[in-house]
Nucleic acid binder design. Structure first.
Lengths: 141, 141
DNA sequence: ACGATTTCAAGAATCGTTCTCATTCTCATG
DNA sequence: CATGAGAATGAGAACGATTCTTGAAATCGT
């Protein structure tokens, strides 16, 4: 079961009708392993001869975010990025280069445990978290 | 040595001249313990009978961020917030309520250690990091 | 005090994002 | 299969946060 089919199923169950634009966004996202901005999605679909209104991209991302199928990533540059959220709860965090703006992913189980422990003590029912490390990448340093 | 005087010194050393607007922003920030948006700073200064152009607020924040005197916090709602960065490197992270938008601070030494450990293995020279936990606060849950 | 340069405020401009609305499409029902 | 109610779409307008521009005032070295 890929993320793409899972996402389409969940959208279905949530009562969304089949729409070409939303489906195109889901399929493009399913092919990514890290985050994309709305503009990059828009451009990617146009390049793939499947042009979609930018408003539809935002609408699709809003619906997907609402259903926790995609995660919104804020790299600190004022541009929201989005990436598929695997159904098994697995996820990663981000490393942003302050100079060239490159965004990379990393994972660390110990970090996850530390976060879970903190989340338990807050009084919030934390259902999402994000870690962003900012610095100079190997090329820019 | 308060953060306010420290910040004014660093600005001085960096070649910035004394300007009323920047000073007003620094003094207001120095009185905060958590993050404020540019608009909140603008409103706060106007209320304090020290009106300042919104552009000057942004310019001051840009200079302060550049010098690492303030930290930009992105709570995921599209509004950038800013808070003083204590000179001793001490810092905290944020807890955002998905429903009411409230932003609170928390600290956790174990989390810091986990992050430092991860940062060392990345190949980046990480000089800043941010953790945002999102969920429902006690009131909204 | 003078001149060079910075800082300032106000408004215009920009950019990412959201809204509006007329049209097209989907799908449960006849 | 045809229909109609309502969802989805795309184009462009609107929006809000942020940045740029401009001419005037403040600051600092001399």
């Amino acid at each position: 079961m890929t993320w793409t089919t899972h996402a389409l199923d969940v959208l279905d169950d949530a009562g969304y009708r089949r729409g070409g634009a939303r489906r195109a966004v889901v399929e493009l996202l399913g092919r990514q392993n890290c985050c994309l901005s709305a503009q990059e999605i828009f451009d990617g679909l146009r390049k793939a001869r499947r042009p979609v209104g930018i408003a539809s991209v935002y609408r699709a991302l809003e619906a997907l975010t609402e259903l926790r199928l995609v995660k919104r990533v804020d790299a600190g540059d004022g541009i929201a990025r989005y990436e598929p959220a695997p159904p098994d709860g697995d996820h990663h965090h981000h490393l942003v280069c302050r100079d060239c703006g490159k965004v990379e992913a990393f994972t660390d189980p110990r970090l996850e445990r530390a976060i879970d422990r903190v989340a338990d003590g807050t009084g919030y029912s934390v259902d999402e978290h994000e870690v962003v490390l900012t610095g100079a990448c190997a090329d820019c340093a």
